[in-house]
Structures are given as C-alpha cells and as structure tokens.
Design a protein around this nucleic acid. Structure first.
Lengths: 387, 387
DNA sequence: GCGATTTTGTTCTTGGTGAGAACTTAACGG
DNA sequence: CCGTTAAGTTCTCACCAAGAACAAAATCGC
C-alpha cells in the first residue's frame, strides 16, 4: 500500500491480494474460493486470473470435483512463472534453494566455505549456475546483525565490519535482500510455522548466543538501523557479572545458549568452537548425568526468566524458539515455564504467553530468506511492471 | 486499509487521506498544496473537498495570497464538524478536553476525584454537560495497564481488577477508547511532538515507576492483551535484589523513578504518596545537596543503562521521556547518555539513539487520548457512514 | 436415467473514479 | 496594460468492480 490513488492501482492491488492469497494458502485455492477469500465477485476474479495467467504468473488446472456444482479450477503457480532464490550462510556451509509462488521450496545446492567473505563469491557462482530467466530475486540469511543493511558483524566468523556492497557486485539477480538469520527464522514461523496468524509474537533462535525478532502481524521488526532483535544483549538475568563479547556487562546471552553451557564446563567460548561439546552436554543431561543436567537446568531457567521479562514489555501471544531452544523445550519445558511465570508481573500470570518449539525446523532461516525474497514478486510495484 | 476493493472504496480512501493530511499538517493546507501532498489532480481534489464540505467535515476559507497565481482556499475544520473528547485521569484529578480536525485542543473542565472508580461517573457527567451533536468519540487516559481492554490495574489508586465495562454504561458517546497514559503520551510525541516522522521509537513516562511504549511508524504497540509497554518490569538494572510491587524481583522500576528516589531517603514507596518529597529531592539535588545529588545520579544511571539495553533489542532511532524523565535529562543528560552507551553493544555506540525530552509536556496523555479518539473520525469506515 | 438442485463461469450493463487536456479565472509584475 | 503564473473548472476518456441474468457442468433424489 505504498500509495493507492487511481482505479488502475485498484486492479494491481487486487491482483496482488490474489497472488498473496495463493502464496499463503495451505492448499491450492480454487478460483471460486479465491473469490470468497478476497470478497470479490466471480466476474472480477475471472478478469484478475485471466491477466495473471497471460502474464505468466498463474496457471489454471481443472480441480477435482467435490460435491455438486460446476467444476472449477485450481490456481497454481505458472510453470514458467517467477521464482526467488534463497541462501543460508551458516558457520562453515551454505545452502541455495528456490521458492516459487505457493511456497514450494526446492533445494539447489549446498557447499562449504572458508569462513571469509569469499562465500559471497561461492553463492554468486552457484546462483549463476542455477539461474534461469525465471529468477527474480535472491534472499540471503546471515548469522549476525547487518547495520544499516550493509555493514555485517558476524562475531563467530570474525567478520567485524564487512561491507556488503563491496561483496555484492552488479552481476547478481535483480534484487538482493540480506537479513539476519534469527529474524528470518521468526518470519518463517510467522508465515509457515507455529506463529501463523499471530498478531504480536516473539521468536528466538538460540545457538551459541540468543537472537530473535519481534513479529507484528506477520512482519518482522527491523528497527531504525536494521539491527533490532539483539535481545540476547539485555541484562535480563544479570549474566553472572561477566562481560560479554559484545562489549556489555551482564548480557542474557551469557546465561542462555551453547556458550553458557560450555562455560559451565570450563570452556571459554570462542568464535563458534564447541558446538559438538554443546550437543554432548545435552545428551549427557538427557542420560541423567548430574553436572550436565544442572547446566541445562540453569540454561532453561535463565531462558524462562528472560522470556518473562520480555513478555512484560512486549506482551506477545506466543513465543517460538528454534535451535537449541527446541531441545530446551523438549527437556525442560516445566523449568522454562516456571521461570517465565516468575518473571511475569503477577496480574499476567493467568494468561502467560505460549512458549512453543518452532515447527519450521532448521530450514527456518532459509525459508525466511525465501519468503522475503519472494515478497518482491508479491508487491504492487513489481506486478505493475510485469503485466 | 481494512480492505479496499471497489472504486467506491477508492473515493473514501482518498478522502480519508485528505482528512488525515489536514489533521496532521503543521499549518493549514491550501487546496492546491493538498493536491500536491496527496499526489492527486486538481480536479480530483475539487471533488473530494466538495463532498467533504457538504458532509460538514471541511470548511473552505479564502487564503491570503502569496505571490502570483490565482488565489486558493484554506482547508479548515468545519465549524459544525465532528469533535472528539479526551479525558485524562490522574492521581486525584481529571481533565476533559475537546479536539477537532487539525488537532486544536480545547480544555473543557477539570475536577478532583476520590480515587475510586466513581471518577468514571464524574467524567460521564462532565461529558454530558459539554456534549453536543458534534461529539463523536471519547478517549480516556489511565495510569495503568488495561488487560484485554477492559480490566484495569492501577496500583497507585489501589484498583486491582476494575472491570471497565461495568463502569461504562450505555449513555456514553458512540465510541469510548480507553488506553494507558504512558502509551498515549508516546502517541502524542509521535503525532505532535519530538517523535514526528520517526519510524521506530520508544517513549517512556517516568512517574513513580516507569512505563512506556514502542512506536512504529507513528503507531503505538498494544500487544496481544493490550498490556504491552511495561518496560519498567524488566530486570534491566538488577533492582538491588528487591522485590517489586508487581510481584517480580529486580524490576528496572525499582531503580528509576520517584519511588527509587524516595527509597534512597528511607521512604518505603506506597500508593502514590510522596510526590511532593520527590520534587524536593530534585530541587535539593539541583541546589547542590550531596545525598540528594547521589540519589538523582543513581536514578539517571539506572535510566541510561536500561535505555541502552532496550536499544539493543529494539533499535529505536529516538527515545523520548516525559514526567520525571524531563527533569533527569535537564539535570543529568551526560550521565544518562554515558550509562546508555555502556549498555549499548559496542558496534552500535557510534550511532546511539537520540534521547530527548518530550515536547508535548504534561498534556501528553490528554493529547494522546484526543488523538486516538479522533482517529475514529479519520477512518474509512466512519467516513463511509457520514457521507 | 432423467429432471431438480447446486455451484461456478460468462456476458452485458451500469455507476463510479481518477487522469488528462483544454480552458477560465484571478492574482502579480514590469 | 498586457504577459506571466498558479489555481479552479469542465469535459472526455479509460478503467474498474458490482450486479443481474444466463449458461454450463457437476451431484442428488426419485
């Protein structure tokens, strides 16, 4: 809704609504159901669909008849319609995937990288290998804040202030969108996971430390400099008085996440080392080993305490977790919820936020990157140019 | 933009945009400037204005000519156009005011109350005294969270769970909107004050304790149960290990605000007592008394520390303060900013959020209530019914 | 098996919307 | 006093969605 003034805008607007409905629907929409969903006449939907079909965006296929009435058609993505690519850059590997209208995600390629910004070249080359003229945009998920949308800070790769614009040349797809992985994982939950339909929600990705995003009506919150979401760097649990790598004292991240687990066992957390040991600690806790169990307990309590505090401030209806958070919920749900309740103001304890494991899984950042990248297609501006 | 489908919607939509532009403008818009602002043709604006004039919403007055060209007209609120009332319920007094298109606020009446929900009767009677057929809606500002929009918790009045629906009968104006005062003060700053035009911003009202709101694109954030904004009840400074009246340990509010000042002087904070002493402490600090000065120092440092933490999470471009916060900025700006920087992640310290005193002043909650109440008029739904 | 029913697609008319061009009006300036 | 400038007015036009009436294609009941 950038602006909407003329009757020509109206047509594009309704077509965008239609494409969005098709994209977000669980099952393929029929032509008639689309009309009902949009609250629009059957005659009008015919016009919309017609133009979108000739524009190569929608493809109509006869629908299996169910019950009475004239058979209708399914609205499917056009086989030669636009697609977006999505890349997820993890610790030492990356994945490239493709998404099309309707949300179908297809893996394209996976590779390893050398933990330097040369990974952008890898992805550029992979993109070029798989690109067709259907490719519209590329979304990239990165495990760190991206100041002003261009300056990357990825502590566990040792990237201090990598300029994104220097990494991205001119020979990329039309639009490149780069965003933080925790934020994108939250977006994935909001679009395709446990946070569907939630008005106000929080998502946290717990890895070595903890990052997340506030979700409002299915939109992630970016902040003024595109670095909103560093919830892990609030002193929500005191942080045992330690100083955090981020430069602040007492961060929540010092008590929650794999780094906190490692510290319990004398391993001073570094740049991403120790993931294996972290998994081991979890396994030993599950097997009943006392010291490991206590470490996990502390992690869960600190997590819950922080969630309660954040719930006071932001009043989410649900909170989802990914990464280590999924394991913590599985092993210590009661501890988390109890600690959360303790952090909640008394009058809110009757209606605590639901704390859920994310359902999108490890592909969260990739899925989120795909969704943001495909958002370019689902905009009035792009559509105007296409039709 | 609830939904927008037909060409009739388009007309109402543009008329709403026009009214909003008139309402939000600093100086009265001329007909021609409105056309430019909306990016719409002169002929179209004529049609819009014409209908709005006959609907009794706008009133055209010849504009003073400046320079060449055919003289135009000013778009002013219609003298018999719709107005909203706004009420601010403070500790032991209340104010009723009227707002009209363009934002002009006119005080109507002030009264005292007995700190019981009987104050709603006072306001109902005052509203009836001043009501004309121009009255469309009433906004009420209250100093506490309003769970699910109906259950009031105002600690310093001793209201534990007052049901708003029982207080509001049927003989009120068409629409009654009730909201938290800190949130409304923030809205006032966003609409008419220091936060105009800010995308992501925070506002805090510091009184006995501290409450606030996250502002996104000029909209306050309400949360899932309408109780977002209790930032004072996060453990951002440790709270000296004390337990807060809210039921949680270590709240930020224990270290920031008048209650924190009082506790320094041995006064256990109760339900709103001690405001006078709080003012005295500030005055003594300003006069150079050491102990009072240290109390104010601590308050400022705790404030800054919390703001830094919140900035990490939410990345606001600006933070405004009202209430005691204005004094703290005046007396201890450096301390606040320094403490804030210490709480900011290192890589953000080059671009700290601006920390500003609110410019709307004490009328903030009233102004905010007026704006929300008047929002009813500036909606497509209401307009559709009126024309 | 055939007609009634139900649901959907199609066609045509209609009211409404803003854009654009051309023209008019009303000020100022030299 | 006439040219310039800016704004209001009028008229045509392309376009859009709604609504009504009708046609098409399936199921259901007898």
């Amino acid at each position: 809704m950038p602006q909407m003034k003329t009757s020509a805008d109206l047509r594009v607007h309704n077509q965008t609504r239609l494409l969005r409905a098709v994209h977000d629907a669980d099952q393929p929409l029929t032509r008639a159901s689309a009309a009902r969903v949009l609250g629009i006449g059957r005659n009008t939907i015919a016009a919309l669909v017609g133009e979108l079909e000739t524009a190569g965006l929608l493809h109509e296929v006869p629908a299996a008849t169910t019950g009475r009435g004239r058979p209708t058609t399914l609205l499917l993505p056009h086989p030669r319609g636009p697609v977006a690519f999505a890349a997820d850059i993890r610790e030492d590997s990356w994945t490239l995937a493709q998404i099309e209208l309707g949300g179908r995600l297809t893996g394209l390629e996976t590779g390893e990288h050398d933990r330097t910004p040369a990974v952008f070249d890898d992805i550029r080359r992979a993109t070029r290998r798989h690109a067709t003229d259907r490719l519209v945009s590329l979304g990239i998920a990165l495990a760190g804040p991206i100041l002003d949308g261009r300056r990357l800070h990825i502590s566990h790769l040792g990237w201090d202030e990598v300029d994104l614009y220097e990494q991205i040349g001119d020979d990329w797809p039309p639009t490149v969108v780069v965003d933080n992985d925790a934020r994108l994982a939250g977006l994935a939950e909001a679009r395709r996971g446990a946070l569907r339909g939630a008005g106000t929600a929080l998502h946290f990705h717990i890895d070595f430390d903890i990052g997340g995003t506030l979700l409002l009506g299915g939109h992630t919150q970016r902040g003024a400099h595109n670095i909103a979401g560093e919830f892990g760097h609030m002193p929500l649990t005191g942080g045992s008085g330690l100083r955090c790598m981020c430069g602040v004292q007492g961060c929540w991240s010092l008590d929650v996440g794999t780094n906190a687990l490692l510290r319990r066992f004398g391993r001073e957390p570094g740049y991403g080392a120790g993931r294996q040991l972290g998994r081991e600690i979890l396994a030993r806790a599950e097997a009943g080993e006392a010291e490991a169990g206590r470490a996990v307990d502390d992690n869960a309590v600190a997590l819950g305490r922080g969630l309660g505090a954040l719930a006071n401030a932001l009043d989410p209806e649900a909170i989802t977790l990914s990464g280590l958070g999924v394991e913590l919920i599985r092993l210590r749900r009661d501890l988390i919820e109890h600690a959360c309740a303790e952090g909640l103001m008394e009058f809110r304890r009757a209606q605590p936020p639901r704390i859920l494991a994310g359902t999108v899984g490890e592909a969260g950042p990739l899925r989120g990157a795909a969704e943001t990248a495909f958002d370019a297609v689902l905009s009035a501006g792009w559509l105007r140019g296409r039709i």
